[in-house]
Amino acid sequence: MYAAGIDVGSTQTKAVVLDEGGRIVGRGIRMTGADVVRSSEEVLAQACASAEIPVEAVEYVIGTGYGRFRVTAGDDQVTEIGCHARGAVHLFPHTRTILDIGGQDTKAIRVNEKGEVLDFCMNDKCAAGTGRFLAAAAEVMGLGVEEIGPVSLESTERLKITNVCTVFVESEILNQLSRGRRREDILAGVHRSIAGRSASLLRRVGMEPELTFTGGVARNPGMVAAVEERLGLAVNVSEDSQYMGALGAAIFAVERARAGASRQEASR
């Protein structure tokens, strides 16, 4: 038996396929783009191909993320908060707080030992403190988003980025560059700025260790270092950090599939 989770995020759409034992057997990812329906179908096909199973073998699919209601293959939907929490606790059972930094929003979630959500807090009103802020900084510098984290780690001089607004920070970065400041130092300042905003979200939910950092931005080593420095603790980061929402959705899907299967057997 197989089940899948599809997470339609603002930037990327992700899918995870699990087997009956809850092991990840396939993953799929692509840019969400304008056609949400198509991207959700494609990531599922991709995940099934990587699992070497036909799409029909997947018994239950749960959609999550902002485009979850447009996942045509979805049997049900679960909020991304619930899915991120579930995925994080599955991979790191001692997780009590989750920081999820995505392309367009940032969430702080506090959970219990079962991965149930106790409290959460989110910034989705503005791009400050989200992946978009980093992407804007990368673009101004002419670097790729995957390059800026490692570059920021080479910083030797502490520099403070004062603007919170993503639009204004672009001018601030150009200004700093024109004054001869090094891009390593500027980028470290950009990462610290986001870490600062994350810390205030985490304070609002009452952070408790262990902290698991999820979302696409968790793959950025500069961001992990900035968050750890700011909070003064080590954070859990998985190789699958960007699939966390899809993984959580897939775990819910496995449970539903099992429950459904037993219901069918009982009715026989």
Binding site: A34, K125, A127
Partner: peptide, 16 residues
Amino acid sequence: SICAVLAESEVINHVT
């Protein structure tokens, strides 16, 4: 969207 950056994506969606 109140945020200028998020509004960019929103207007692209309107075009679509």
